[in-house]
Amino acid sequence: MSRITSFLRARPWAWSFIAAAAVWLATVAYTGGQGAGEILTAALSFATFAIIVGLGQMMVISTGPGNVDLSIPATITLSGVVAMKVMDTDSSRMLIGIVAALACALAVGVFNFVLIRLLRIPPIIATLSSSFLVLSTAISYGRGIRIKPPPPLADFATARIAGIPIAAVFVLLITVLIAFALRRTFYGRSVLAVGQNERAAWLAGISVDRTRFITYVLSALLSGVCGIVLSGFSGGAALNMGEDFLLSSIAVVVIGGTSVAGGRASVPGIWGAALFMFLLVTMLNTFGASAGLRFMLTGLIIITVIVLAGGEKESR
């Protein structure tokens, strides 16, 4: 028993996987085993998108208190719209489309940092206001037109082998890269150092500005990737395609065990939390809960998971 608690204590992310497994089992028990595998496949497919942006959000939040990227939904929309419009359903234009979309995302990241650093606007306000500008750009550029993705992109986003979505494998690669960066690279260590104590990090010779700059750009780029893949997955870009990700990008970070105060990131927790969030809604839908009850239970269960994960940390 004590071995289990010490295992959990060292791994705050484990709670999110336990919670995900619990809601999955509850759903499968309710349906009498029907659709158990399909539910997991669907969860993997849709969790993919929350994971991509969640990783970016995690890096931003890890750079210290007050750092958060609220421009993620707008950036997803802009890059999706730009990608689809530049590609114009033509497979040979895919690369240009991807480059154009990522360039737009990059610009958003740079712009966010400029607002935060040069104009000294708190990140929460800076990224929220930049998201208005970004979304307006997307609206005036795209005019709500849904252009289908070129077939190779759609295939990439929706294909699965033995029930495992290809996109999820692609995101697993990104996840491993980020985990590696956090543990083994100067940049990754700097993020955590800056998040733990900005002044100490600065005294140790770390460039706080450069670390934050890279982080905000990284978050925007990941949002850009999400926008492109999501457009491929859902048959085109829409103006409200990012809306879902404002809260979920933050929720997967927090439920996953990353410290909101910064300085401690939990990469695997993003996966557990994203799967949990999807499976939770699936479970409540399957039970046929009404919308009000669904929202209430979602809130209560999320609080419970956070308290459980957080409570363990306190006792350290």
């Binding site: 759903t27 349906t31 029907q34 399909e38 539910i39 669907a42 849904r146 409200n240 879902d244 839908n285």
Partner: peptide, 14 residues
């Protein structure tokens, strides 16, 4: 469409 796709995919197996 995106939200509908996600929600339907979630409940469909059951």
């Amino acid at each position: 469409q995106e939200v509908a796709q996600k929600e339907v995919a979630g409940i469909l197996p059951s």
